[in-house]
Design a protein around this nucleic acid. Structure first.
Length: 202
DNA sequence: GAGTAGATCCTCT
DNA sequence: GAGGATCTACTCA
């Protein structure tokens, strides 16, 4: 199992990076607790030209500044005052592209994930949905800006990959306010995987 | 099983 | 001062 290099994230096509993240392993080692899961669902956010992105139109604030950095770092955002959403920043400096990790298949440290989410036993809801992903892995807003090449948070490749026909595309979830851009097929997921977040048809 | 309301707080206007 | 890249529980049928 090898850690993905910075060059993986710094490519200029966020859609390709998003697709290739499927099947990779997200690892966190906070406070000595080792947890990891295989990525089965992501969403791409194409910065300045994407209404659903926080950086739409070149908006640049303290919060979004992280997205303008070079690829390979974490962008964590607090949503609805409750949910921490974990993103991977891609592309190069001054291009605010990011990928939201929406679902994982738990691999290591499941007992610790259950503790963090106040669950008794493993079920498919543990890492289904972006709020649950960061909760079970212990990711919080204070982790925004840290490198994915660090020891406590990184993404690894164990050689496993999904066949093209297993990878599906669809419109993104929860971005109805984005108008026409809400229809873009920027969400990618593994077909038939039970951890992929449910059909929210609105 | 489906639909809806409530939680809860940081960020930008 | 408003609203958001969401989730859960509770209602009603």
């Amino acid at each position: 199992m090898k850690k993905l290099p910075g060059s993986f994230y710094q490519r200029d096509n966020v859609l390709i990076v998003a697709k290739e993240l499927l099947g990779k392993i997200l690892v966190t080692k906070f406070d000595g607790v080792d947890t990891s899961g295989r990525i089965v669902e992501v969403e791409a956010y194409k910065g300045e030209i994407d209404k659903a992105s926080h950086a739409y139109g070149g908006r640049r604030t303290n919060r979004t500044e992280v997205m303008y950095a070079h690829g390979g770092i974490a962008y964590v955002y607090l949503c609805y005052g409750i949910h921490h959403l974990f993103n991977v920043v891609t592309n190069t400096k001054d291009i605010p592209h990011a990928i939201l990790v929406r679902a994982l298949e738990p691999l290591k440290g499941i007992a610790d994930m259950l503790l963090r989410t106040n669950k008794e036993k493993l079920d498919f809801s543990l890492t289904k949905g972006p709020g649950n992903v960061s909760k079970s892995l212990g990711i919080q807003t204070k982790h925004t800006g840290i490198s994915l090449l660090s020891k406590e948070l990184f993404i690894a490749d164990d050689g496993m990959s999904y066949a093209k026909k297993e990878i599906m595309a669809s419109p993104r979830i929860g971005v109805d306010y984005a108008g026409k851009d809400a229809e873009l097929q920027y969400r990618f997921y593994v077909k038939g995987n039970p951890y992929v977040s449910g059909k929210i048809v609105k």
